[in-house]
C-alpha cells in the first residue's frame, strides 16, 4: 500500500502514480500530445493533413474496438476475441455486401447477430463454466479465425459497397474522416450504457466485488455474460466499418486489435482486476497507442527497432499505470 499522506517519503514514481491515478485519461492525452510533438520536431513532414486524418481514423477504429473491452474489463473479465470477431465481421461484410449498396441492412443484421452469438459463447464459457477468461477467449478466437479460413478457403471474396465505403472514408472539413459520424452513434450508446443505465452501474459493482454484488441481489452471471455479448457485438460492427475502410477483407486482418484494445484500455486507466475505469480513458488510450505507432513509423525506424521501442514503451507505461499490491504492508 502506498502511504499517500506522508508526502515527504513519497518517491518520484509514487508521485507520478498519484497524478496518473487522478485522471488516467488526461495523462494519456498528455503523453500522446508529447509523443506527437516529438515526432513533428524530429520529422517535420509528419505534420500534414493526411497523417492527421489517418491518426483520427485509426484512433476511432481502435476506440470502437476498445469499447466492449472496457466494459468487459470493468466487470472483471477479459475478451481476446475482439480481433477475431472484427476480422470475421469484415469478411462477412465484404461477402454479403458484394459491392451492392442495397445489401447494407442484410449485412448489418448478419454481422451483429453472428458476433453477438460469439459473445454469448464467451460469456457462457467464462461465467457459467468457470474457465479462465483469458484462456477460453483465446481458444474461441482461434476457432473463429480458423473458421474464417475454412469458409473462405483463405481468400475472402467481395467488396464493401461504394456508398458504405464513402460513409467511412469521406472527409469532413477536408481532414476529419466520416467514420466520426459513426462515432456520434457509438459513443453516446457506450456512455449511456456505462454511466447512466442500470446495467452500467451493476457492471462497476460486479467488477469491484462480485460476491458483494451477488449478495446484494444483482444477477451477476447475467451481467457478466451481457458484457461479453456487448463487447462482441461492438467488435463485429467495428469489423464491418473496418471493411469499409479497407474496402476488401483478409483473414486475421484485425488480429492485432485483441491486444491493442487491451493495452489501450489499461493505459486509459481501467484496472485489469476490474471495478474501475472509464470509456473516456480508453479513447485517450487508443489515441496514445495510435500516436505511438505513428511516431515509430514516421521516424522511419527499421521494423525490428520499431518493435523493440514499442515493447519498451508499453512496459514503461505499465510501470506507471498498473501495479499489483505488495505482500508486505
Amino acid at each position: 500500500m502506498v502511504q499517500t499522506h506522508s508526502v515527504k517519503k513519497m518517491t518520484f514514481l509514487q508521485k507520478v502514480n498519484g497524478f496518473i491515478q487522478k485522471s488516467p485519461a488526461r495523462m494519456a492525452i498528455i503523453i500522446a500530445t508529447l509523443l506527437y510533438g516529438i515526432t513533428v520536431a524530429m520529422v517535420p513532414t509528419a505534420l500534414n493533413l493526411s497523417a492527421i486524418t489517418s491518426i483520427i481514423m485509426l484512433t476511432l477504429l481502435l476506440s470502437f474496438a476498445s469499447a466492449g473491452q472496457t466494459i468487459v474489463l470493468i466487470a472483471g473479465g477479459m475478451d481476446f476475441t475482439v480481433g477475431a470477431v472484427m476480422s470475421a465481421g469484415a469478411i462477412i461484410t465484404t461477402a454479403i455486401m458484394n459491392g451492392q449498396d442495397g445489401n447494407f441492412v442484410k449485412t448489418l443484421v448478419v454481422v451483429l447477430l453472428s458476433s453477438a452469438g460469439i459473445g454469448l459463447l464467451n460469456g457462457i464459457c467464462t461465467v457459467k463454466i468457470g474457465l479462465p477468461a483469458m484462456i477460453v477467449t483465446m481458444a474461441i478466437s482461434n476457432v473463429v479465425n480458423r473458421l474464417t479460413y475454412v469458409l473462405t478457403d483463405g481468400s475472402p471474396l467481395g467488396y464493401a459497397s461504394p456508398a458504405f465505403i464513402k460513409s467511412v472514408t469521406s472527409k469532413i472539413l477536408g481532414f476529419v474522416p466520416s467514420l466520426a459520424l459513426y462515432g456520434l452513434v457509438i459513443f453516446p450508446i457506450v456512455f449511456y450504457l456505462l454511466y447512466f443505465s442500470r446495467l452500467g452501474k451493476q457492471v462497476y459493482l460486479v467488477g469491484n466485488n462480485d460476491n458483494a454484488a451477488r449478495l446484494n441481489g444483482i444477477n451477476t452471471s447475467k451481467v457478466k455474460i451481457l458484457t461479453y455479448v456487448i463487447s462482441a457485438t461492438l467488435s463485429g460492427f467495428t469489423g464491418m466499418l473496418g471493411a469499409g475502410y479497407m474496402q476488401s477483407a483478409k483473414c486475421q486482418m484485425f488480429d492485432g486489435y485483441a491486444f491493442n484494445s487491451l493495452i489501450a484500455v489499461i493505459v486509459g486507466g481501467t484496472a485489469l482486476s476490474g471495478g474501475v475505469g472509464t470509456y473516456t480513458g480508453s479513447i485517450a488510450g487508443a489515441l496514445l497507442m495510435v500516436v505511438l505507432t505513428n511516431m515509430l513509423t514516421a521516424l522511419s525506424l527499421s521494423q525490428p527497432v520499431r518493435n523493440i521501442a514499442m515493447g519498451i514503451v508499453m512496459i514503461s507505461l505499465l510501470i506507471l499505470y498498473n501495479r499489483e499490491k505488495s505482500v508486505r504492508q
Partner: peptide
C-alpha cells in the same frame, strides 16, 4: 509487480 500477461506480451515485441 506488472500483470504477467501484459508484461510478457510487451516482451513479445521486444
Amino acid at each position: 509487480r506488472l500483470p504477467a500477461l501484459l508484461a510478457s506480451f510487451s516482451m513479445t515485441y521486444i
